[in-house]
């Protein structure tokens, strides 16, 4: 029997069909099933709880609106994951539209501030260290090292060159190493 997180695959497909037809109870079950995964991604990409909550809500509203376009060619969880990444990156583009791309979104002063806290003896775990990375480095680190995306895919999602994605990843790892003193 193929079960994932308490759902038969067939059961999930039926819920998706029902939700796409306007059944909110079915959609709520999908929400309960997937909210942890969506929230974790939003939290790590944004680095802030309140923003992660807003983004998670936005993801599920978009999911409701776009469910009819889900063709079932991939697993619903994969489709939702990609939608989440798109919603978060779309939010960055809106918030930082005066900057060209994720590559340009660095807040060096924030990083320096957090790094100095660490130097002063504040213990930092990996989650907290990731949250203090500059936006571009954090985005690429979360997508590549935590979520397993390749540089080509990150490039196509975020609009940066694969080479830029690699450079951001290297920068992120180096900064994390410094912060964590591993």
């Amino acid at each position: 029997m193929d079960r994932r997180g308490g759902f038969h695959e067939g059961e999930e497909a039926a819920l998706v069909d029902r939700a796409a037809a306007g059944d909110r109870a079915a959609f709520e079950r999908l929400y309960r099933r997937h909210v942890g995964r969506v929230y974790a991604l939003c939290l790590r990409m944004s680095g802030k709880k309140d923003m992660a909550e807003e983004l998670t809500q936005e993801v599920f509203v978009k999911t409701w609106e776009k469910l009819h376009s889900f063709r079932g060619e991939s697993a619903f969880s994969s489709w939702l994951h990609r939608l989440t990444v798109n919603v978060v990156l779309g939010e960055w583009r809106t918030r930082y539209r005066h900057q060209a791309a994720v590559a340009a979104m660095d807040d060096a002063s924030l990083f320096a501030k957090e790094a100095s806290k660490n130097a002063a003896g504040v213990e930092m775990d990996l989650e907290r260290a990731v949250a203090t990375l500059p936006l571009g480095a954090r985005t690429v680190f979360v997508l590549h090292d935590i979520e397993g995306y390749g540089h080509e895919e990150i490039g196509s999602l975020s609009g940066i060159a694969p080479g830029t994605s690699k450079a951001q990843l290297h920068s992120a790892r180096k900064k994390l190493r410094e912060m964590l003193k591993k």
């Binding site: 909210v35 942890g36 974790a40 939290l43 709880k49 680190f141 090292d145 935590i146």
Partner: peptide
């Protein structure tokens, strides 16, 4: 990083 939990419940 790869071992971080893939699911986190919102508060």
């Amino acid at each position: 990083a790869r071992a971080l939990p893939k699911s986190v419940s919102p508060a």
